[in-house]
Design a protein around this nucleic acid. Sequence first.
DNA 1: CTAAACCCTGCCCTCAGGGTCAAGGTCAAG
DNA 2: CTTGACCTTGACCCTGAGGGCAGGGTTTAG
Lengths: 125, 125
Amino acid sequence: MHISDLAAEAGVTVKAVRYYESQGLLKPHREANGYRTYSGEDLLVVREIKALLSLGLTAEQTYPFIECLRAGNDRADVCPASLTAYRTRIAEVDRRIDELTDLRARLTDLLTDAESWRTRVRETR
Amino acid sequence: MHISDLAAEAGVTVKAVRYYESQGLLKPHREANGYRTYSGEDLLVVREIKALLSLGLTAEQTYPFIECLRAGNDRADVCPASLTAYRTRIAEVDRRIDELTDLRARLTDLLTDAESWRTRVRETR
DNA sequence: CTAAACCCTGCCCTCAGGGTCAAGGTCAAG
DNA sequence: CTTGACCTTGACCCTGAGGGCAGGGTTTAG
């Protein structure tokens, strides 16, 4: 299949597919005219990349999953490295939620502070 | 004061100060030799920008706060536009926390799923 | 006089692509 | 055979908030 077929079936853009290749995640054959051709495995790979990116992994972090798939496993996440990647990402998300929670508290403090300051000023004006 | 004095006193880098200028947040005088010179007000502005960026606002979103400061207010956040910006940012943070919470649930589901799949495979091997 | 410390502009880099372009290939209808 | 529609290729600039480096001018201390 050509790149636009692959992109359509995987639900991504042609541009994205070329980007994954530039990151070393795909190595399509080339026809005599230079066109890339993709296999059914490549389709699974691109679907996996899409799913992992939507989980907030970087393209680089999808590497172990892709290796796991290409090793012949039905699922990309049954290899130890994939489980580790999941756990690492969960820890990142937890940290980020904590940060944002603190941030929200700071923001509401600032907001109520600024509001009350305005009220005081209006009253004493 | 020169740029490195300003940067040191505000706790940011020289590069950051020049970036704020490129975003239209500062307009320093230039000496005959081309060196930028900053006022005490500029120092307050840079400190304010730093604080707002650490709250996750974009440089562009700091604009109303800076205007408020330059209008002669003691605080950058007592103007109506600043309060609106705070509320907008709080809403963004809330949305982001919700997204990350959903994401975390998806990740733990995937993780336990992959773990149990591995266990089943080991048992039936 | 010289070296250190400071200042300037300008270019390339991040990350996951998006947008746009020119050039060329492929396939059908006319 | 040609036209047109559609496909592909590589190449370039863009994002946000700067970091890093190059190359050059200026100022200050010894």
